[in-house]
Every structure is written in C-alpha cells, then in structure tokens.
Design a protein around this nucleic acid. Sequence first.
DNA 1: GGAATCCTTTCACCCATTGAAAACGTGCCT
DNA 2: AGGCACGTTTTCAATGGGTGAAAGGATTCC
Lengths: 252, 252
Amino acid sequence: MGRPAAGRSVTAKVLALLEAFTPEAQALTLTELARRADVSLPTAHRRAMELVAWGALERGPDSRFRIGLRLWEVASLAPRGLGLREAAMPFMEDLYEVTHENVQLAVRAGLELVFVERISGRDAVPVRTRVGGRFALHATGVGLVLLAHAPVEVQEEMLASPLRGYSAKTTTDPVRLREVLADVRRRGYAVSDGQVTTDALSVAAPIRDANDEVVAAVSLVVRADGAEPAALAPLVRTAARGITRRLASPVG
Amino acid sequence: MGRPAAGRSVTAKVLALLEAFTPEAQALTLTELARRADVSLPTAHRRAMELVAWGALERGPDSRFRIGLRLWEVASLAPRGLGLREAAMPFMEDLYEVTHENVQLAVRAGLELVFVERISGRDAVPVRTRVGGRFALHATGVGLVLLAHAPVEVQEEMLASPLRGYSAKTTTDPVRLREVLADVRRRGYAVSDGQVTTDALSVAAPIRDANDEVVAAVSLVVRADGAEPAALAPLVRTAARGITRRLASPVG
DNA sequence: GGAATCCTTTCACCCATTGAAAACGTGCCT
DNA sequence: AGGCACGTTTTCAATGGGTGAAAGGATTCC
C-alpha cells in the first residue's frame, strides 16, 4: 500500500476508538472519531459499526457515537470499580448522613488517582471531580493517602517529577511533600487544606484489602474556613476501617 | 487450516473476550477465558495481552484476568450510565435520607432493565440486584414503569413472550399485565408488591428527558408488610420530577 | 520423579482488514 | 431550483496482521 501504513493491530485500533471519548467529548461524529483515534475514515466506520452492533457504542439520531450501555455493564464488573464501591457505599452513606458534606472514594492508577464514587451534598462545597475522572496524587486528601502508601518506586517517581500547583497552597516542593507523606503514614489520615481550590479542605483515610495493602481511600471534603480536620479525622478513619473490614469478609 | 475457521472478525473476538466476564465469573484464567469466548488458546492469549497492555483487562498475581480500571473509566462516560447517575444522585440521596430504604435507578435495554445506581440501607430489605445487573421488565417497580412507557412494539413483544414468575405474586398473565401497565400510565407510578421476593414491595416513577420521553425510572423498595404504597408514591414521584428537571437543564 | 495442568512461543498459511476512490445523502447558500 | 460543501457509506484489489497446530516452559500435585 502506498503509505507506510500504521501497522497497528486491529485490537489497538478498536481500543483507540474507545479512547477517543473523553469527558469533554462524549458524543463524536464518525469523522471526529476517526481523527481522534488516528484511523482512516472507512476503518473507523467499519469498526465503529461493529462496536455499535455489540453495544459497546451507541449511535444517536444525530448520527453521533457515544459509549454504549453494554460496555458500561461489562465494565461495572471491574473489581476496583464495583466490588470496592459495593463494599464502601453503606459507610459512605453514613458519612454523608452525619455531615452532609462531599464524600469521595478513590483508587490509584499509576501516578494519578481515579474517583470511583462520590456523594455530593446539594449545599456542600462544589467539587469539580467526576466519578471515573482522574486527578494528580499530590494535592487531594485521597491522593496523599494513596501516595503515602504506594510502593516506594511510585513515590520516588512522583517526587522526582515536577509537582503541578492547583492553588497557592498546593505542596509543590518535593522535600515538603516527603514530610507530609511521612505524617500521613504516622497519623493514619491525610489533610489537604485548600490545595486544590482554596475554599475546600479534605480529610482522607486509607482502605486496606485482606493482605493489609492500601487499595483505596475515602475522604470528606468540607468548606475550608472553620473546618476542624482533627475532629473530622475519627469519622473518616472509622468509615475507612468499616470498609476495610467489609472487604476482608465480603459476605457480612 | 483444518477447521473451517469461525471467520469472526477480530473485533468480535475482542468483544467476546470482554463478554466472557459475568457477575459470577469476574476473574478468569486464560483457559477459561478462551473457552468462554470460544476462541483458540493462543488467540485468547494474544488478544488478552493486548487488552492488559491497554488496561481493558488486568491480570492479578494469580495470573487471572479481570476487567480493568481503564475500561471502567471509559465506560463511565456512557450517557445512560454516568450522565443520568450524576443528575439522579442528589435526589436519590434525599429519598434515602428520608426513608432509609433501598433506592434504585434503572434504564431499559431491550426487554430487560439495567440497574444504573442503587443505594441500599444497611437495615433495609435485602434486594439481590446489582448495579450493572439486568432484570426482567414485568416484575419490578422500575421495570413496570419502563415497560409502560416503552414503544408499543416493545410492549407487544413482551406481552407475547412467556412471562417468568419470580414469586407466587408475579404477574404472569399477559391480559392482567396489560391492565397493570395502563394503570401505571394513568396514575404516574408503579407498584410491585412481592412480585420478585414476597417480602419486598417497590414503588417506582418515570424520569423523562428533554423530549418528554421516559428514559429511566427511580424506585423505593421497602418491606412488604405494613407498606403504604399510596403514601410513598408522592415521595418517589417528586424525586423523579426533580431528576427530570435536572436532565432538562444539566447546569443548574 | 513423573504426571497433570496451565501458560507461552514458534511457524507457515491465509483471510479479515485496509486505503483510495467513488457513490450516496443531506443541508445550506445563492 | 441548482449547485456546492460536508459527512457518511460502499466497492475493490492488494496485503500484512491474525490464525491454529504443535512444540516448549513453568508450576503444582501426587
């Protein structure tokens, strides 16, 4: 064929098609899809039609493609997604009911975190996180917990890379961050005071699996002014322990 | 090649690999995966490795495959999954807080329904439904709402097929079901009294999109004895209307 | 040690996949 | 209306990623 031809595997192309969808682009025309996935238009068309036939994608009356319900169903079987959520929800509900603040659940994915669940009160501080969304590890409460208990290699890689600042209060100094992480491990919870947006403060605690490995973190996000991290910590830690216990014995 | 060779497309095989995972089989060995997806072992191996490399699957220390977090992230963009959930959660929280019973959110997928969200109280009636799980349309409260407002073809197809009974109280007579559906449309809510398990009763109401089409349903599931469907209905309907309003104006 | 089970790699054949190009719609502007 | 612009769908011959059989590793269990 005239051109060097990508030579990507079919599977890679199919995955690229799925990857083309982002929170900002949840509905794509065929042309957009092809361009974003970097495949030729006919190829995009053929693969996309197959994905639609199966239900991985859906096509609306506007002829735009969207992620399909069927894919969502299968994906909901992800152990770090649903299994965790299932165990955590009752405790998150309790936290929400007592405080009426934002309650978040996250896991680590490389050098970032992924929000697995979120309960946000109607009059709680607005947080701009999304279930399924990613965020850096060094700024949020949940992120600090996950980073503090991550394998050493991960921590070092994080400390070696430039730390992006989200607000004036974000910890961007590696030396300081190292201290913070040690604190988190010692105290058993993390506090992020205005490090994402200056008006929000979060308190987070680690959730462990049956092998005592930290696999997730829960947090409470409240308005920064007048917040008492020390008072919130026991609440969050108790919830985290409850979830940990539930993970150890999935039945009861 | 000895055998006629399936001739299935690569995409179909990849999707078959994903489809191999079910709520009962969330972790599969390569051999199991190959058998369930009906592909040869080497093929399963190659495709699965690619899926792992991308993050669609994960492979544990036990060398078993599981659905990966990355796939879950992408799938969370499904409009009927996350978008809906996002709009509905606050209202579902309200329902939960007031009643402390199970709150469910579901959409229709063909002749079945898919649960998109669920809040289950710790001391509420145990329900054996799962987020991401499917169920028949003719038994549950949400199902009756979705069926009552489904296109006529769907209703007729459902009424023409044998209606499975889940408990002694399940409506299995098409004639009776037709009446029930008319009732649901007239009253604006559905009641399923012990039709799934005899000890549970659910009250459900329709959620509409901007075009006034019913796209989902919320329900409250309570203990059957002593339940007052007529008293619960306004609560559920109010929540449903709230969600409908939110769907119409995603911002506010 | 030996057997059973599961996983991984190799190899030569070949069919599903591919891009260019052309046909098909559909809405918009003149 | 005509004609133009844009996005979508189909055709076709060439080909390279995909394929299963079979051999080679790696564990675990008796």
